[in-house]
C-alpha cells in the first residue's frame, strides 16, 4: 500500500526464504528485488495491475463455516467444530486457507500426507488462487 492508501500490488504468494523453492518454484530474492525497487525508486511491476477476482458464494460460505468452527473449537465444542470444518472443506476442497488451515486445528499434520494430497489436487486443478497468478509454480 502506498502513502495514499492505494493497493499498489495485490496479494501474491511470496516467500521469505528459499526453503520451499524446490517445491513451489518461487524464489524469495525476486520478490525482495520488487520491494526494493518500489521502496527506493517507486517502480511498480507489470503484474501489479492484476485485479483479484472476488470470492464465490461458496468461498464466502466456507469462510463463515470455518470461522464458526474455529470459535466452536475454542469453546471446546469439538463435534460442532468438526461438522463446520467439514462443511467448509466440502464447499472449497482446494482452498488452503480453509482445508490446510483446519488441519492443525483438528489434530492433523499440515506438512503430512493429507497436505501433500491436497497440494497434488491443487496443482492438478491449475493452482487456483485469489491473487496474482503464478506461471512458475
Amino acid at each position: 500500500m502506498d502513502e495514499e492508501d492505494r493497493i499498489v500490488r495485490p496479494n501474491a504468494a511470496e516467500f521469505g526464504t528459499d526453503i520451499f523453492a524446490e517445491l513451489t518454484g518461487i524464489h524469495c530474492e525476486d520478490h525482495f528485488e520488487l520491494v526494493r525497487a518500489w521502496v527506493s525508486d517507486g517502480q511498480v511491476p507489470e503484474d501489479a495491475s492484476h485485479t483479484v477476482a472476488d470470492l464465490t458464494g461458496d468461498e464466502v460460505k466456507a469462510r463463515l463455516h470455518f470461522r464458526l468452527a474455529a470459535h466452536a473449537r475454542r469453546a471446546s465444542l469439538t463435534d460442532v467444530a468438526d461438522a463446520h470444518f467439514d462443511q467448509a472443506a466440502e464447499l472449497t476442497p482446494l482452498d488452503f486457507t480453509v482445508v490446510r488451515a483446519a488441519m492443525p486445528l483438528r489434530g492433523g499434520n499440515p506438512f503430512g500426507e493429507e497436505f501433500f494430497d491436497l497440494y497434488g489436487a491443487y496443482k492438478e486443478a491449475g493452482s487456483p488462487y485469489h491473487g496474482i497468478p503464478r506461471t512458475t509454480a
Partner: peptide, 21 residues
C-alpha cells in the same frame, strides 16, 4: 452473508460483498 448453527446457538455474520469489491 451468514451461517447459523441453531443447535449450538452460534451465528457468524460476514462482511457485505460491496466491502470486498
Amino acid at each position: 452473508p451468514a451461517v447459523i448453527d441453531p443447535d449450538a446457538g452460534l451465528l457468524v455474520v460476514g462482511q457485505p460483498a460491496t466491502d470486498r469489491l
